[in-house]
């Protein structure tokens, strides 16, 4: 009785595992998801890119991240948090017109990209507290 159920059960779950993902499928995974991009992006009413980058760095430090890379010309900061788990994230800052800056963050939790809006919302909340500006949603 047990064997009769056990074998199909194992077969089904194994076939699901096979369908999960091949190694190469991760190379170009994701991409052009409008929804993801909008949850990862906020606009701020300032044109001071360097101050924004410094504030991003300070916020990341407040959240327990260590800065892996920072580039003031391109406007990118990459940082890692280790706290029993690993989060690696990149934040980019670029101009949007004359008066606004677009800040985009993308993060990996251990081996998986974070695609849930809440962590990004939390990050931008922390960032707007630090820079004393409101984070606007962008389309």
């Amino acid at each position: 009785m047990i064997n009769r159920l056990l074998l199909p059960a194992i077969a089904v779950t194994l076939s699901m595992l096979v369908g999960c993902a091949s190694q190469n499928s991760h190379v170009l995974a994701g991409g052009s998801q409008v929804e993801l991009r909008s949850m990862q992006t906020r606009a701020f009413d300032t044109s001071n890119k360097e101050l924004m980058l410094r504030t991003v760095i300070a916020t990341l430090q407040d959240l327990g991240f260590i800065i892996d890379k920072a580039d003031s010309d391109i406007g990118t900061v990459t940082a890692t948090k280790l706290s029993g788990y690993q989060i690696r994230m990149t934040v980019t800052v670029r101009a949007r017109g004359e008066t606004q800056l677009l800040v985009r963050a993308n993060a990996m939790y251990n081996l998986k990209a974070i695609e849930d809006p809440q962590p990004y919302q939390d990050f931008f909340n922390s960032l707007s507290k630090a820079i004393f500006l409101t984070a606007h949603d962008v389309d």
Partner: peptide, 10 residues
């Protein structure tokens, strides 16, 4: 995996 709720909260 689920992300700890406090990961991005001060």
């Amino acid at each position: 995996p689920t992300i700890p709720k406090d990961a991005f909260v001060l």
